[in-house]
Nucleic acid binder design. Structure first.
Lengths: 141, 141
DNA sequence: TCCAGTAGTTCGAGTCTCGAAGTATCTTGC
DNA sequence: GCAAGATACTTCGAGACTCGAACTACTGGA
């Protein structure tokens, strides 16, 4: 019995993800970042309205205590700040500092340089993206 | 400046991977497995010649001490056995037990059921696989 | 006003991952 | 044959991440 297409595709996604992680861990460490902190940094887009911690936790598929932990690390390094929301005093937005924006740009540079996906053509990237987006948009189970 | 195609594709791979993990963690726990142990189990194909620990570590992109740790867990649960290689007494092959084969099949079932990729058509899966394989095959960095 | 619900934090435990060091075995070059 | 270096794996100890439980502060509705 041969492996079916879905199993092979899942394995391939997994493989690309693991290779990416393996390739970027070292360079990120030189920036004083781990995979977890780099992911959180990536999730903060300088061009958008600063998201609440709850929103960021949802993006990262992690829970509140975990995000608190990661935010502490980024905050200690001066890369993000917790800004109180005047409309809801329980809520705090995560905002990139100037240095945070610089380091985030570095992260993006490192990842795009080292990712196996850098071997693909623009057309392939477009196709890949449309397929993965369709999968991700489908309401989770 | 808008996000380029490669960044978007990397994010999409990441997203699908994270969703898959989030969706399978619970069901795997009911089998007494974690993500790490399930990945190791997945990496052992019942149809192939049992791979050495070194070979499995390479597949999982982890190092020797880590695989030793994971193999201990699977071994304690009676899912794999370490079989000495008669040709090289330093080496040990990881072999699925009968129960290990059953549990591995369960893992595959759970993952294929819950993965976001289950929303894709066979054609899309084929296209996805060919693109990702091309990326993964390209010599790392 | 009261009270259930929400956002975030703190704490403690569990798991994973890795480097360093150690053991046993293999292989190379003499 | 044999010493020296390399290899496969294990053990140990530390660091990092993740999560549930419990807590604080605040919100919004009855």
């Amino acid at each position: 019995m041969t492996e079916d297409g879905q199993v092979a595709a899942i394995r391939a996604v997994h493989e690309v993800f693991m290779r990416t992680e393996a390739a970027i861990t070292g360079p990120l460490a030189e920036l004083g970042l781990t995979t977890a902190t780099a992911q959180a940094l990536w999730a903060l887009d300088p061009g958008e309205e600063p998201p609440s911690m709850k929103a960021v936790a949802a993006r990262l598929h992690c829970n509140a205590p975990n995000l608190s932990f990661v935010a502490d690390q980024l905050s200690t390094r001066g890369l993000v700040e917790r800004v109180p929301d005047p409309r809801d005093k329980r809520s705090r937005a995560l905002v990139l500092t100037a240095q945070g924006e610089q380091v985030r740009a570095e992260v993006l540079r490192i990842v795009t340089e080292r990712s196996p996906l850098s071997a693909l053509t623009p057309d392939e990237l477009t196709t890949l993206l449309s397929i993965l987006d369709k999968a991700a948009e489908t309401p989770g189970r």
